[in-house]
């Protein structure tokens, strides 16, 4: 197939299709994933190709969907459960955190739970307080769960293929604002490895660490800074939050002496907080400034498009924050 121009949404679907063609044990289950084709269209048409036994429309029963995926994974299938919005993760948290995440360890390594929980989060659609959150920190705080958050079309495909090969449960969080994003996908190219971050932009003045949609805001901010202030910012896409690739971050931060973490999730006890602490611990002797978090406000998301937009980092805000650091 090699290189194709496609979208984030279609790249995800391609990854699912190929995985299902390659392995009969791969199944998809969730609300509206079959006949409807997925609330965001990711699984469109898959039921026609793979049938109702492998693309399973469920009742609105999130806890049991995730729990059934846990059991299916233990019993020999490779389930991909879909949670329509990451905001519903609370309803599944026992199955995810007490079951999926604990089973390998608690049972002394006898068995793992090879499942993928696909979901999507983030702001951008005026979807209100219960449909706009960024809850990756809940997952990252739970040992035993892997966590992938693709930001590019290429990774929508490659990271999902890789997630489907993991021996342990993977929570795979897409961003609702990225589904229509276009890009080039090279299915044959050797992808960046699972658990490896990617340097998206070089720059000697500061390192901006980000992931998911905020990566694009960080890149846009870096462009603004280069153009308007001659500031060169390196930008790193984490790709997976567990495993966390600190080896890619460390040398760049040691060189630049300044680091910022950008995340859409609420600032307090969020992913950015963890990364800022880690950078501070590991690179302390090289830092010229405190490591700065630019993250979601510590508030719920409003339906008002105006309030929503300013509840999470914008490219302008990120570039302002860098200027504040470097002044």
């Amino acid at each position: 197939m090699a290189k194709i121009e496609t979208t984030y949404r279609d790249a995800l679907r391609l990854a699912l299709t190929e995985a299902m063609q390659a392995d009969d044990n791969v199944i998809i289950m969730g609300e509206e994933v079959g006949r409807y084709g997925g609330a965001y269209g990711v699984t469109k048409g898959l039921i026609d190709e793979f049938g109702e036994d492998r693309v399973i429309d469920t009742p609105i029963s999130e806890a049991a969907i995730v729990g059934a995926a846990v059991g299916a994974g233990m019993a020999g299938l490779r389930p991909v459960a879909e949670l329509m919005y990451v905001d519903f993760i609370g309803m599944t948290m026992d199955q995810l955190a007490n079951q999926a995440a604990k089973i390998r360890y608690m049972f002394g390594g006898q068995i793992g739970v090879p499942m993928v929980l696909r979901t999507q989060g983030g702001t951008g659609r005026s979807a209100g307080a219960q449909h706009s959150q960024s809850l990756e920190a809940y997952v990252m705080h739970t040992p035993g769960l892997r966590l992938a958050m693709p930001s590019t079309v290429d990774d929508a495909y490659h990271l999902l293929r890789q997630a489907l090969k993991q021996p342990d449960p993977v929570v795979f969080i897409e961003h609702k604002g990225l589904y229509t994003m276009k890009g080039t996908l090279d299915t044959d190219a050797e992808p960046a490895g699972w658990g490896k971050a990617r340097v998206m932009r070089e720059g000697a003045d500061i390192v901006i660490v980000s992931y998911s949609r905020q990566l694009h805001h960080a890149l846009a901010a870096a462009e603004i800074l280069a153009r308007e202030n001659g500031i060169q910012a390196a930008v790193i896409d984490l790709r997976t939050l567990n495993p966390l690739d600190f080896d890619t971050i460390r040398p760049l931060v040691e060189q630049a002496g300044r680091a910022m973490v950008v995340s859409e999730g609420a600032m307090t006890s969020g992913v950015a907080a963890e990364l800022a602490a880690r950078i501070t611990e590991e690179c302390f002797d090289f830092l010229e400034d405190p490591v700065v978090r630019v993250a979601g406000e510590d508030i719920p998301i409003s339906v008002s498009p105006l309030l929503e937009k300013h509840s999470v980092p914008t490219p302008e805000f990120i570039s302002d924050a860098v200027r504040m650091m470097l002044k």
Binding site: I60, D87, F88, M91, S126, A127, G128, A129, Q130, H131, P300, S302, V303, S304, L307
Partner: peptide
């Protein structure tokens, strides 16, 4: 005040403890 939206209208004065976007919530 624009924080809730269509799925979250509420008015305690009329005994409306809230509309919900979580099915069953």
């Amino acid at each position: 005040h624009g924080k809730g939206g269509s799925m979250h209208i509420a008015d305690m004065g009329l005994g409306h403890l809230g509309a919900n976007a979580i099915v069953g919530g």
